[in-house]
């Protein structure tokens, strides 16, 4: 009844839907993080209407003077293009920040919190606000 071909085709469909499912789960996983930032931004920013990729882009590209002199900008390590690899100051490659290029980014709450804390302190000399974090991820999700 089942030819080897239909068996194969069924297996292929299964495999394909499994990968599609995995991708959906990953995409959804970045939502709770963004939703959390939106919640805090709403509470702390009067007139908050949503995150802005444009503001996120400005944060990514701007040169700062309030942080450590070695790290004036996010681009110091992440490079000028979200689609390209960056490099740490000790020459270690960093995968692109654009979600389309590095799909597992912004999905692990601990990792996201750790690096925002460190990198914002290094570059800005303070922690980033929920608004800044949400804008940054929103920008990277459009890239």
């Amino acid at each position: 009844m089942h030819s080897p071909f239909t068996n194969f085709a069924a297996a292929l469909v299964l495999a394909l839907s499994a990968t599609a499912f995995a991708i959906n789960v990953e995409a959804a996983a970045s939502d709770p993080i963004l939703a959390g930032f939106a919640e805090s931004a709403k509470a702390s920013t009067p007139g908050f209407t949503g995150f802005s990729a444009e503001r996120g882009k400005r944060l990514f590209l701007s040169k700062q003077t309030s942080g450590k002199p070695e790290t004036p900008s996010c681009t110091t390590c992440h490079g000028n293009s979200p689609q390209s690899r960056g490099q740490t100051r000790a020459d270690k490659p960093i995968e692109p920040m654009a979600l389309s290029h590095t799909p597992n980014r912004y999905s692990d709450p601990k990792k996201v919190a750790k690096w925002f804390r460190r990198n914002c302190k290094s570059v800005l000399g303070r922690e980033c606000t929920a608004l800044e974090k949400g804008d940054f991820i929103t920008f990277m999700a459009t890239q």
Binding site: K68, P69, E70, T71, R89, R117, R118, N119, K121, S122
Partner: peptide, 10 residues
């Protein structure tokens, strides 16, 4: 670690 060679590595 919060000022590790000019970086926050806390």
């Amino acid at each position: 670690l919060s000022d590790h060679f000019g970086e926050d590595a806390s």
